[in-house]
Amino acid sequence: MLFNFANILVFVLVGGGFVGVSLFVSRLIQPRFPTLEKGLIYECGEIPVDNAWINYNLRYYLVAIIFVIFDVEIAFVYPVATVFKNWIAEGKGMIAFIEIMVFALILFVGLIYVWKKGDLNWFKEVVVTEDTRRTPEEATAL
């Protein structure tokens, strides 16, 4: 069993070695005339503006939290999925199915909760008054 993971080890070694060797060889044979333009961070040909580390919208964080929870759920379902066929063959498929559905339903409650609370909506409902009404240009800029 453990021997299978030797493949991954070889893969990691070859992959890492590939990067190391090609960087080393190119360092040996490349001509080097550094200029300011060449040293700039590549940003699709644009001159980079400001720092790349910016404050992201906090709403991404909410989505990321919800994702992590369901990521863990899937991690729980994986081992069950591997044995499910055997259980069907043994005629115990229905029990297994109910067990896993109960698990999924419990988590579905959480999903319904965040859905109902409107946390999945990207745009929160805003009260529009004369002062806060946006021009179409401003709205598309969002």
Binding site: L62, I65, I66, I69, V72, E73, F76, E99, V102, F103, A104, I106, L107, V109, G110, Y113, V114, K117, D119
Partner: peptide, 16 residues
């Protein structure tokens, strides 16, 4: 296993 599901739901709602 099912309690783990409850725990996940609770943590989801709490975190949100």
């Amino acid at each position: 296993f099912e309690i783990a599901g409850v725990l996940l739901t609770v943590s989801l709602i709490g975190a949100v």
